[in-house]
Design a protein around this nucleic acid. Sequence first.
DNA 1: ACGATATGCAACCTTGAAGTTGCATATTGC
DNA 2: GCAATATGCAACTTCAAGGTTGCATATCGT
Lengths: 115, 115
Amino acid sequence: MSRSRGATALRADDAAPVFAALGDATRLHLVGRLSTDGPLSITRLSAGTGVTRQAITRHLHALDGAGLVRSSRRGRERVWELEVKRLEKARRYLDRISAQWDAAADRLRSFVEDH
Amino acid sequence: MSRSRGATALRADDAAPVFAALGDATRLHLVGRLSTDGPLSITRLSAGTGVTRQAITRHLHALDGAGLVRSSRRGRERVWELEVKRLEKARRYLDRISAQWDAAADRLRSFVEDH
DNA sequence: ACGATATGCAACCTTGAAGTTGCATATTGC
DNA sequence: GCAATATGCAACTTCAAGGTTGCATATCGT
């Protein structure tokens, strides 16, 4: 096998929604916050963002739809946490593209040298 | 300096537009195509996409706006190529978030162990 | 029981993304 | 010069994303 832990590479059509979810400043801030501070409630995530709690809730659902976060009810609050696996899949996707580009650049270089 | 080659980490507000540009299936396909086949003209990039050349042109401009591609005129055609540096910055951004998450997970674990 | 706190849900508004069609302009090759 | 090829530019349509307000519902703590 080419990768450890059975990780499957994302195909373009599957990767696009993940990047789209990351492609909003507010959501990217949420992801950053969850990555540093760990699981947090909606109210805590909303504090200091400048937008309403309902808007934040929508963003969290958007991230959830892309598989980037996960939530669970804890008493009267709902706690959200990062789904780091999906994030790493996205990272590997970018890795692969860079690698392909490098290979193409190498081919171009040797082509030029041969002519 | 903390990184070689003077690479600067992207901040959330700068990274979001990059991910947004990657967050569309058509554009992601274009990026993939450019990464494997190298510099290509608009007409070639449009062939077989199912959308009009004008739409592809718009997508290319969107990618350009995010700094992910670069173009130059070659005779009567315009050739687009991947700007792999920006792609790698985005990759490092995801890397950093994963790392922060790992650190947070470690803190949480030792916190639990101490109580 | 009750006030305070934390969410859930829905209707509504505004704006920009994505795609189209139509037409103008620039280059190439004979 | 001219037909074919490759873009550039602009107006128009459709639709969903991002935000808001208002109100209902569920839990906690005393």
